[in-house]
Write a protein that binds this DNA or RNA. Structure first.
Lengths: 210, 210
DNA sequence: TAACCCGCGGTACAAATGTTCTGTTCGGAA
DNA sequence: TTCCGAACAGAACATTTGTACCGCGGGTTA
């Protein structure tokens, strides 16, 4: 708990956290007054102004319950993005071409630690162990950003046309051919004609949960 | 988008998502009215009641902006748990023994998709490639639950005493010895005396982000 | 001492906001 | 046709709620 705050301000901050995590909507000034045993709404208002000055919260004036929790550096926190899980990914299957048109199988909430501000992401469930060389196991979730091209060194989901195979590897264009480097540094790269490789998306994250 | 809802209701649901993700607090009825081009507040109220009946939202009556988004099965969603990143994990380093006493280096927000309701989790940043056989790479984040013992087949963080080495493997007690099975099915297990293996925690999730 | 600022109390007010009431329209069932 | 309920419109009403105002006590400073 930060120490550039008065005891009352810390108490308000704690109450805000608790209330929001309990209700999913912020408290009114009078909720705070009651929850922190404060004698007057004006005192709450006063301390909220101090908290806003110090970058712990953000308020929209004239709007009820319009308190956003920030992280003390003025950044908002704990936003999540709902990412649709569009299907499976396996070595022998092409990726879904039009992510938008698919009905999501399920939805996962990702925090923006992972999404990094990106928005139109989608996820696929890995089926089979064919991507072990990318350190990706059966059952893992891979999060992708739709892309038709990639910068050198980025990890992409690529469709290798003549093999009819999807693979996840680091992408290095080298003139007329492309070097696809497994993420496991002990394994050898493969080389393909540039025409033979279709970049389908950029890998944003992989998640394995037990 | 669910189909047991009228177009107006779907529009309201979409607006709720957008508004909340933008402001971190829910809209008022009149915000919804404006945002969805609805002619009257009573229509918004009417459709909110239908949405509540069908389990898409929850409302607290007489409280402004008291709308919680549910997932359609009546469960609340987008709760996150703040998990402290206590330090690094590497082959030659023991794990922090008393997670509680450590000052977190940073904090990550994890959605309860991953935490699965568990609460006292902590995370470690993987340093080096020594855990490649567990399909875990340099820079990955591993999420652990403090544990001194494990059930057969669970993935644990184990300290191998005489080697002074931390490893992440599937745990199979076999009488007086323990089989530690890499997650990469193509690799061979190692065997250790039961006395020589200290279970430090259970692996809950691994996250790799690019 | 006086002047001043900070934190606080109490109160009043106006705006924001949830709720209710009365009708209307429309489509399907009887 | 008539009846009924779902969905909507419009307006009025009653709380809820943010905000402003005035004042007080204590500490600091000139």
């Amino acid at each position: 708990m930060p120490s550039d705050l008065s005891e009352k301000q810390q108490s308000i901050l704690r109450f805000l956290e608790e209330f929001i995590s309990e209700h999913d909507y912020p408290p009114s000034i009078r909720d705070i007054q009651g929850g922190c045993d404060i004698s007057s709404t004006s005192v709450v208002d006063y301390n909220l102004k101090r908290l806003e000055e110090k970058g712990y919260i953000r308020r929209d004036r004239e709007v009820s319950r319009a308190i956003e929790l920030l992280n003390g550096q003025g950044e908002r926190r704990r936003r999540t993005l709902q990412v649709p899980v569009l299907g499976k990914i396996a070595a022998g299957l092409p990726l879904p071409v039009h992510p938008d048109s698919m009905a999501p199988v399920e939805v996962v909430d990702l925090t923006d630690d992972l999404t990094n501000g990106r928005t139109n992401l989608y996820a696929l469930r890995v089926q089979g162990t064919s991507m072990i060389d990318a350190l990706i196991n059966d059952g893992d979730l891979v999060v992708l950003e739709p892309r038709q091209e990639a910068n050198p060194g980025e990890v992409v989901a690529a469709w290798i046309i003549d093999r009819e195979e999807t693979t996840l590897k680091k992408y290095y264009p080298e003139g007329k051919r492309v070097r696809l480097q497994p993420m496991n540094a002990t394994m050898d790269p493969i080389y393909e004609d540039a025409d033979n490789v279709q970049v389908q998306g950029r890998l944003v994250a992989t998640i394995r949960s037990f």
